[in-house]
């Protein structure tokens, strides 16, 4: 709220300044209050009840949470989310940035390449998941092709091996998502003033050093936006798993969002689903609140 100095003696009350803007914001404020905050409070409240198919206010304390954390499937879900999250974060950033940097070398047909790389993002997760289910299927996909080329001992069946199945899902996720990250990064790179590059060149700084020590620090806002987009994608990963493995083999590729859905709608145990979704919210809050504090709390000092 930068004060656009209304430097008159009869200064209007703060509340009525920018009246139209405030009126316009009312629907959004109401939405936030009732849908987001209200829905969250409702969910957390009912996670302490024994609600089954229909929500009922019969409180059972922390029972749902105790059960949740003693359930093998939930533990595996959390581990998978952790592996998927860390890998997805690192690879999205690295691949996205490298692609963007390459794209930024004033290459020919940049538009074409950009479109090709961004294109997977136009596909839904369900389609992506099905496509990669076929590609990774040992009988039709990569393994079969390599074997037919002569390497008959070649084994590549991530979706059928419980130990590495989550990486099979990661591959599909990265294929779908890195295009967008690349475009965001490219926009960031284009936002860097040409003069910075000229100055660096005059000083004889090699290009990789310019990227690492000058350009990347200047791209901080873009990185923050990208981080939020990737992180939200990680927490809600669901459809990809459903399309590729539906949680299998066994329960090796279960994820928290799928746990929530299955318990709320298939097992008809709302309380358990709410407890699980509250834990997901808590996990997000633990990451977001310190970050928001640093990001927005810090700005006042500057």
């Amino acid at each position: 709220m930068g004060g656009v100095g209304v430097a008159t003696s009869d200064r209007p009350i703060n509340l009525f300044r920018n009246m139209t803007a405030k009126v316009a914001a009312i629907p959004m404020i109401l939405t936030v209050l009732f849908v987001f905050v209200g829905g969250t409070v409702w969910t957390v409240t009912y996670s302490f009840t024994s609600s089954k198919l229909l929500p009922k206010l019969k409180f059972v304390g922390l029972d749902q949470y105790e059960r949740l954390w003693s359930t093998n499937r939930w533990i595996i879900s959390i581990e998978n989310l952790f592996i998927y999250g860390i890998c997805s974060l690192i690879f999205s950033f690295v691949i996205g940035f490298v692609l963007a940097a390459l794209m930024d070398q004033k290459i020919r047909f940049e538009n074409t390449f950009r479109t090709i790389i961004l294109y997977p993002f136009a596909l839904s997760f369900i389609v992506t998941g099905l496509v990669w289910q076929w590609i990774l299927n040992p009988e039709f996909g990569v393994q079969n092709i390599v074997r037919s080329l002569g390497w008959t001992g070649f084994v590549f069946d991530p979706l059928y091996n419980a130990d590495i199945v989550i990486y099979g899902i990661l591959i599909a996720g990265l294929w779908q998502g890195t295009g967008l990250i690349m475009v965001l990064m490219l926009a960031g790179l284009r936002g860097i003033d040409e003069d910075v590059w000229k100055a660096a060149r005059v000083d004889g700084i090699p290009a990789w050093k310019t990227y690492l020590f000058i350009v990347i620090p200047m791209m901080r806002p873009v990185f923050v936006t990208t981080l939020v987009i990737i992180a939200s994608g990680i927490v809600r990963v669901y459809d990809l798993v459903v399309a590729q493995t539906s949680g299998g083999p066994g329960i090796a590729s279960e994820v928290p969002a799928k746990y929530v859905y299955d318990y709320m709608f298939q097992s008809q145990n709302l309380g358990q689903g709410f407890a699980a979704s509250t834990m997901m919210l808590l996990a997000v809050a633990i990451v977001v609140i310190p970050w928001a504090y640093l990001e927005f709390g810090g700005r006042k000092r500057g």
């Binding site: 089954k52 499937r73 299998g248 066994g250 329960i251 097992s267």
Partner: peptide
Amino acid sequence: MSPDSIGQINDLFVEFFND
């Protein structure tokens, strides 16, 4: 049994048969 208990038993056996 309630769908909830059936769901838990399903989870157990799909894990058992695959691991």
